[in-house]
Simulated assay, not measured.
Amino acid sequence: MKTARVAYGGALHEAVPHAEGLQLEDGRVLAEDAVVWLPPFEVGTVIALGLNYADHVKELARELTVSTQDEPLAFLKGPGALIGHRGFTRRPADVAFMHYECELAVVIGRTAQRVKRADAMQHVAGYTVCNDYAIRDYLENWYRPNLQVKNRDGCTVLGPWFVDAADVPDPHDLALRTLVNGQLTQQGHTGNMVNDIPALIEYLSGFMTLQAGDVILTGTPDGVVNVNVGDEVVTEIDGIGRLINTIVGDEPFGRQGTTPCASST
């Protein structure tokens, strides 16, 4: 089952897909652009993984001093970083290189503490699509993301749908891709993760308690390119969803310079 959370008519609603857009729980059918899309579930802690696809490590090899044999590169995000489907993400005017990252987002369904690999998938409630933007200009170095790179307001897009784990027979057998203004720029496959989902849950739950609603962003494959103001970026994963986002400049947010991104919602 696929579900979403949207704002419409001054209220929050749950919704499901419909041939004409989406259907609210009260039966009303609306076009996709008639609502404000939110992250499709109540989000807890967001744990992001860097360099979790071998081809992306290779893509950045000249800038990296890291091996795929290192332990997972994980970092946290605050709630202000999150926006939903059809939202707007700010590109500051003074940056030279800002790129998308299409990622499978794993949603935890129940408390996980010191979970073994063999039991890890029992703690997964479902999945959604993530587009996690980065601005390379702000990196302290090329492989250890700092707050301004990865925790800017509105720079992490989730949605449109939350998909139950029972409806995804093998989350490690999904094709993912990114299109910028309709042009295919990134292709990958979740089977190429350096650390798969059970490994990540075992690793993370070994030193922190994962709770229902926590999200693990599992990394992106190679193919990241610079995006500019006005670009429409579509990140999609087979069986999970098609997530749309638009890049805007400083003006809609009344900001200038290097102030971090802002959300339209």
Rank of each mutant, 00 (worst) to 15 (best):
D238K: 13
V229T: 14
V157G: 05
R5M: 11
F162R: 03
Y138E: 05
G87L: 10
T185L: 06
V180Y: 08
A134V: 15
A199M: 01
L64W: 03
G230D: 06
L22R: 03
Y53C: 10
T128L: 04
S67F: 09
P171I: 01
A19Y: 02
Y100G: 02
M121H: 00
I108S: 03
Q211A: 11
V6W: 09
A81Y: 05
R28P: 03
V43F: 03
A105T: 11
R62V: 00
G219T: 10
H99S: 12
I47G: 02
E25S: 15
G191F: 07
G223R: 05
D196F: 04
F207S: 12
L49W: 05
G109P: 08
N195T: 00
C102Y: 04
V115K: 02
V57K: 00
I240P: 03
T45Q: 13
L22D: 07
Y53E: 09
H172E: 05
P72V: 02
H189V: 07
P160K: 07
G27M: 04
R86D: 01
V234T: 11
A120V: 04
R136Q: 14
H85S: 01
N245V: 13
L176Y: 14
R114A: 06
R86K: 08
Y133F: 15
G254T: 00
V124W: 03
L243Q: 05
V46W: 01
L60A: 12
W161N: 06
V180M: 14
R152M: 15
Q211V: 05
A165P: 10
D173E: 04
L76E: 04
T111K: 15
G188H: 01
Q23V: 15
L51A: 07
M121S: 00
L49F: 06
Q148N: 14
C102R: 02
F207T: 15
G154M: 13
L51G: 05
A15Y: 03
H13K: 01
Q186L: 06
T258L: 15
D70W: 08
L184F: 00
S263I: 07
A48C: 13
N226M: 12
I240S: 08
N226I: 09
G182P: 06
D222V: 13
E140C: 12
G249Y: 13
V16Y: 08
P169A: 07
H189E: 04
V95G: 12
S264T: 09
P39I: 06
A7N: 07
T190F: 07
L51P: 04
V215C: 08
P79T: 10
A212W: 09
T265M: 09
P17Y: 13
R62N: 11
F253C: 06
A15G: 04
A125Q: 10
P160I: 12
R91W: 10
V6H: 07
D231M: 11
V36M: 09
L73P: 01
D170Q: 10
A112V: 13
L184H: 01
A262E: 14
P221M: 06
I237S: 05
D153G: 15
E32H: 10
L179Q: 13
E202S: 01
A31E: 13
K2N: 06
A34T: 14
E232C: 12
F207Q: 10
D167K: 06
A31N: 10
A125G: 09
V35W: 10
T128K: 05
G191D: 09
V229K: 02
